[in-house]
Design a protein around this nucleic acid. Structure first.
Lengths: 174, 174
DNA sequence: TCGTCATGGGTGACGTGTCACCGACACGAT
DNA sequence: ATCGTGTCGGTGACACGTCACCCATGACGA
């Protein structure tokens, strides 16, 4: 292996391209979706998760796991979306300190209207560039990295992943 | 081809994994970098671009092109970084309405200290998961998508890419 | 010479994300 | 009993990103 303290030419290209492609694709899609529907990408992600849940309803922590967001971010997001009438909070009978988030009628309409547009953008900016082989290699690559991340999180004693206490810094010197 | 108005199973996995992997890797690296150096990812990107420029100095618009950021975002970022002493604005003698951004001494120290840590994080959270074959396929995939995006931007009459006027919406119905 | 348009850059307001911290509840050990 | 500790969720302050808009300069044609 080359010097592990630096990135070689190929690694640089891979890493910077990885960032650049994501940023470019996401920003294009987000901008168009925002213009056409008034929904941000975060709005859309929440609506999709809720729409796929039974009854259009999820516990907050389930939504948090589904989106892999930080707790506070989700709280703020729900608050904003609730103020716009897209979702509603509901108390949880089983767990007195828990809460549900439910898709409202307006939320259903919003996600129903936005989904085909969003798909069209994803196709246009992303899949139209890819051959069928690319899709499979991408799936493989994604799974590989995600598996690695989950494993690292486990062996770190869950020190780093989205948790409330700031990650202990001792994991940089194992 | 399947129904272009929706994403099939494989496409869903590829797309959602694409987003999930990026978000997960970037957030981990950003968090660690922030804790260890006080630099955000945006700070780091600006410092890297400047450190690679001759004299540690760039015109604002060059920095904008290098990072593929929106104009205003960069202005705010520079303002904040200047207030922290990491960079400094300088007038441009050739173009009276232009401006340079220069790395300060503190900026050099910051990027010098942060770079090896950042590389270590990238290696840990990203390259350690990848085999050597993955790197090449990733480079290929990145280049493919970026080429496609640039081409789409061109044929759209530069309607969509980071520009000041909001992208004209007529590009959804070509 | 006077509009007009393009370019380089900035400002202020507002929506979004993160950090530090809090409150309510459950559960086990002392 | 009460004391930590973990979970579920929220709040407020602040940093970041975007949108709408502005100013200054220069090129160019009427």
């Amino acid at each position: 292996m080359t010097d592990p303290g630096w990135l070689d030419e190929r690694e640089q290209r891979a890493w910077r391209g990885f960032l650049a492609v994501n940023a470019a694709v996401r920003s294009r899609i987000a901008r168009q979706l925002q213009q056409e529907t008034g929904l941000s990408s975060a709005d859309y992600a929440v609506l999709v998760s809720l729409s796929e849940a039974p009854g259009g309803r999820l516990r907050v922590f389930q939504l948090r796991v589904a989106a892999d967001w930080e707790k506070t971010r989700l709280t703020h997001q729900i608050t904003r979306m609730a103020s716009r009438g897209l979702v509603a909070r509901e108390p949880c009978p089983d767990d007195p300190r828990g809460a549900f988030v439910r898709l409202t009628e307006a939320g259903w309409e919003a996600i129903t209207a936005a989904a085909p547009l969003h798909v069209a953008h994803v196709r246009r900016w992303f899949f139209d560039a890819l051959g069928p082989g690319h899709v499979d290699t991408l799936i493989d690559l994604n799974d590989t990295v995600l598996r690695h991340l989950r494993e690292a999180d486990r062996t770190d004693g869950a020190a780093c992943p989205p948790c409330d206490v700031p990650p202990s810094c001792d994991d940089v010197l194992p």
